[in-house]
Amino acid sequence: MSLQKRLLILSGLIALIFAGGTLGFYFLGNLAGGRPGLLDSLYQTTITLTTLGSREMKPLTELWYGKVFVIVLLFAGMGVLFVFATSLTAFLVEGELRHIFWRRKMDKLLEKLENHIIVCGAGATGTFVIEELLGSGHEVVIVDAQQERIERILEAHADKRIPYVLGNAADDEVLERAGVVRARGIVVVLPDERDNLFVTVTARQRNPRLRIITRSSDAQDEARLTRAGADVVINPSRIGGLRMASEMVRPQVVTFLDQMLRGQEQTLRIEELPLTAGCSMVGQALRDTNLRREAKLLVLAIRDASGQRTIYNPPPEQVLETGDTLIVLGPVDSVRRLRQKMR
């Protein structure tokens, strides 16, 4: 039985003992010839159980059944109060100790993370962001001021160890604990536009190489956030409008993309694979990489190092160069394994 449930049961027993003591003193007192009221009976019960007073309710306490009642009440009440006090102490101490150990364990986990993605805000939009990042196999750190939101996500992904920081993302210390200096990206989806701006400015100052994605529903705020250091500013109204138009004119394409992203049997994603100088695929023709046959990856496009030129549906004889980025479609696990080999 948990301490919380035990405390609830003991609280109920204490209430019953006080009620029983009050009624006992009231009826037995009147039976003994006294005229005690309910308040007098409650007062007598309280000083009896707490041993804080010596006042006796005469003539009841001079009669044998009055003495027996007081003894039974005292032993029963003191026993329950003692167990309640020890359980309450254990609850407070263990809860504090659990919090201390949790904090240390989480801090150690956060200190080890590198190239992770921080998501500030676990509301409706933030939850979708976290779901997609986890589904794509990325390391995610959740930052939110509400424990309930974080616990909801943790319960939905009980099989994963998801680090998080409980606190306001606009606090510099919270971002430091989340590892903003070592992160490769941050998604800012806080409900307050001013907090989004402040976190964007702070994150850019802490980590100039950080990729910052934030949200704004106002055109003026979009420009302000871009100047503050955001790489991309997402307007939910614009995205929603484009989605609705696509549902109208190209429903099969939208259905295909939805099934690809949310398929239960196999999770497919369109991912990007940057080719560094040490990658074994550099200098090879696309046909010789065996990406299609071995990794089950379809190369949709290739972007050069400058990002200015994109080759769509590249031919098999296309030679891969250092700095190229492959845009591929395939299973998440295949992309993850290939990334590990390319490191």
Rank of each mutant, 00 (worst) to 15 (best):
residue 70 V to Q: 04
residue 52 L to F: 06
residue 78 M to Y: 12
residue 73 L to W: 00
residue 54 S to Q: 11
residue 61 T to P: 08
residue 53 G to V: 12
residue 56 E to Y: 10
residue 64 W to C: 12
residue 69 F to E: 03
residue 62 E to P: 11
residue 72 V to M: 08
residue 71 I to K: 05
residue 68 V to E: 10
residue 76 A to W: 00
residue 80 V to R: 00
residue 53 G to D: 12
residue 70 V to F: 04
residue 53 G to I: 11
residue 63 L to N: 09
residue 72 V to A: 15
residue 61 T to M: 09
residue 57 M to Y: 02
residue 55 R to W: 04
residue 51 T to V: 05
residue 71 I to N: 04
residue 69 F to Q: 00
residue 78 M to C: 05
residue 80 V to H: 00
residue 63 L to C: 11
residue 64 W to Y: 14
residue 55 R to Y: 10
residue 58 K to S: 13
residue 76 A to S: 10
residue 72 V to T: 14
residue 77 G to D: 00
residue 79 G to C: 03
residue 60 L to A: 08
residue 72 V to F: 13
residue 76 A to C: 07
residue 73 L to S: 03
residue 73 L to D: 01
residue 55 R to K: 13
residue 79 G to E: 03
residue 62 E to N: 13
residue 53 G to A: 08
residue 73 L to V: 02
residue 68 V to M: 09
residue 77 G to Y: 00
residue 74 L to E: 01
residue 71 I to M: 06
residue 52 L to I: 15
residue 53 G to K: 12
residue 69 F to G: 03
residue 65 Y to M: 04
residue 54 S to H: 10
residue 55 R to A: 15
residue 77 G to S: 03
residue 62 E to A: 14
residue 74 L to H: 04
residue 70 V to A: 09
residue 56 E to A: 12
residue 57 M to S: 09
residue 73 L to G: 01
